[in-house]
C-alpha cells in the first residue's frame, strides 16, 4: 500500500481500521501524522455510519425541466470526459501518444543519422536538453534519473500536486516503474518508448504522473 492508497483507506469507514492501513501507518511517519491530524473529523463521520432512515416526504412527482436539462448536460459532459477525470485521462492519452510519436521520430532519426548522432542520446523535453544515455546503462536507470530530476524540485506544482503529499521516494520509484512496465506491456511495445513518457511529464509534477497512473487502470491492474 502506498500513501495515496492509505488516504483512500483512511477516508473509507469500512477500511479505516484495516490491518493493511495499520501496517502502512506503522512504517510511514507522514501518514501517521496525517491520520492524527484528521482523526477528530474522521471520528465524527465514523459515528454517523450507518445513517438512519430518512423520514421526510417528497413532493416532486414529475421531473423538473431544468433538472432534466442538468441531467442531459451532465451525461454529455461525462461522456465527453470519457468517463474518467477529463484532465488526467487526456493527459495519459496525450503523453502516450506523444511517447509513440517521439519514439517513432527518435527511431527514424536514429536510423537516418546513426553515424552522426548516437542512439545513446535522448532529448528531455522538460529541460530541453540532450541526455547522454551512456551515463545510464539500463533503461530503468535512465527512467530513475528522470524521476530524480522531477523530484529535486523545480517542477511547478499546481493545486492537484501537493508537495506535502505522501509517497516515499521508494514508493514513487516503484509506482513509476510499474507504470512504465505496464505501458510497455500494453501500449508502447518497448522500454525505449515507455521511457519517453517520463521526460514528457511537464509542466506537471511527478506527483501528477502518479495520479495519472492511478486513474490509468484500463492499462492494467498492476499500475498502482
Amino acid at each position: 500500500m502506498n500513501c495515496d492508497q492509505a488516504f483512500d483507506c483512511l477516508t473509507d469507514s469500512a477500511r479505516r481500521h484495516s490491518p493493511e492501513l495499520a501496517e502502512h501507518l506503522a512504517r510511514c511517519r507522514r501518514c501517521r501524522e496525517m491520520e492524527a491530524t484528521l482523526e477528530p473529523a474522521l471520528d465524527l463521520f465514523d459515528e454517523l455510519v450507518p445513517e438512519p432512515e430518512m423520514g421526510g416526504v417528497a413532493t416532486a412527482r414529475i421531473a423538473a425541466p431544468d433538472t432534466v436539462r442538468v441531467a442531459e448536460q451532465s451525461a454529455s459532459r461525462l461522456l465527453s470526459s470519457g468517463a474518467r477525470p477529463p484532465f488526467r485521462r487526456t493527459l495519459v492519452l496525450r503523453y502516450a501518444a506523444a511517447a509513440m510519436v517521439g519514439a517513432a521520430l527518435m527511431g527514424v532519426m536514429g536510423s537516418i543519422n546513426n553515424a552522426h548522432s548516437p542512439a545513446s542520446a535522448s532529448k528531455c523535453t522538460w529541460r530541453n536538453r540532450v541526455i547522454d544515455r551512456a551515463e545510464y546503462p539500463t533503461n530503468i536507470q535512465f527512467a530513475r534519473a528522470c524521476l530524480d530530476c522531477h523530484q529535486r524540485g523545480e517542477t511547478p506544482l499546481d493545486e492537484g500536486a501537493q508537495p506535502s503529499s505522501t509517497e516515499t521516494p521508494a514508493e514513487l520509484t516503484a509506482a513509476v516503474d510499474n507504470l512504465m512496465r505496464e505501458l510497455w506491456n500494453r501500449r508502447t511495445g518497448s522500454w525505449d518508448r515507455a521511457i519517453v513518457i517520463v521526460p514528457q511529464v511537464q509542466p506537471q509534477s511527478l506527483r501528477n504522473l502518479l495520479c495519472t497512473a492511478e486513474i490509468a487502470k484500463p492499462f492494467g491492474p498492476s499500475i498502482v
Binding site: 421526510g56 416532486a60 421531473a63 423538473a64 433538472t67 442538468v70 441531467a71 470519457g82
Partner: peptide, 29 residues
C-alpha cells in the same frame, strides 16, 4: 439539512435521470 427538502432533491434527481435516460451512456457510471 432538512429532510423534506432532501427527499425532494433526491426525488427530483432520480426523476430527471429517468426522464433523461436516453442520454445515459454505459461509458460512465
Amino acid at each position: 439539512a432538512d429532510r423534506d427538502a432532501a427527499e425532494d432533491a433526491v426525488q427530483e434527481a432520480l426523476l430527471a435521470a429517468f426522464a433523461a435516460r436516453r442520454t445515459y451512456n454505459p461509458r460512465f457510471a
